[in-house]
């Protein structure tokens, strides 16, 4: 059976990373921006697993790092959702353009 080469997996993860970054910069909906951040973190997860499996299979460092990232991402999402709900209560909107109290 032919295995999938490493570069293919890296293409996927890099594409995800830049899709996430594009979403973070262009979207105006805060929930979508949060999803973009999750995309960035998950692209990193794929990267870690791929590097671990293909380049350094002797130990499982990369896999363990992935578990830590998933846990931290969950904690971050919990805090982010709380912030967004709080913002929604005050602004009645989750558009980032409406959150413009401070000007230079």
């Amino acid at each position: 059976m032919n295995t999938i080469p490493l570069t293919h997996i890296l293409f996927v993860s890099t594409a995800l990373f830049f899709i996430g970054m594009y979403g973070l910069f262009t979207r105006r909906n805060i929930i979508t921006m949060l999803m973009s951040i999750e995309l960035i973190l998950n692209s990193v997860n794929i990267n870690f697993i791929a590097f671990n499996k293909y380049l350094h299979p002797a130990n499982l460092d990369g896999v363990f790092f992935t578990i830590f990232i998933i846990a931290i991402a969950a904690a971050e999402a919990a805090v982010a959702i709380a912030i967004i709900i709080n913002l929604y209560r005050n602004h009645k909107s989750i558009d980032i353009e409406d959150a413009a109290e401070m000007k230079y």
């Binding site: 973070l24 960035i40 990267n47 350094h56 990232i69 971050e76 913002l87």
Partner: peptide
């Protein structure tokens, strides 16, 4: 205060993403 925490979160999470990308490349 709400707006500040939102901005802080977005910037913090974004820079964490960059840091993790850097760590994966160094790991590779």
């Amino acid at each position: 205060s709400n707006e500040a925490s939102l901005k802080y979160f977005l910037m913090g999470a974004f820079s964490t993403g960059l840091m993790l990308m850097g760590i994966t490349l160094i790991y590779g």
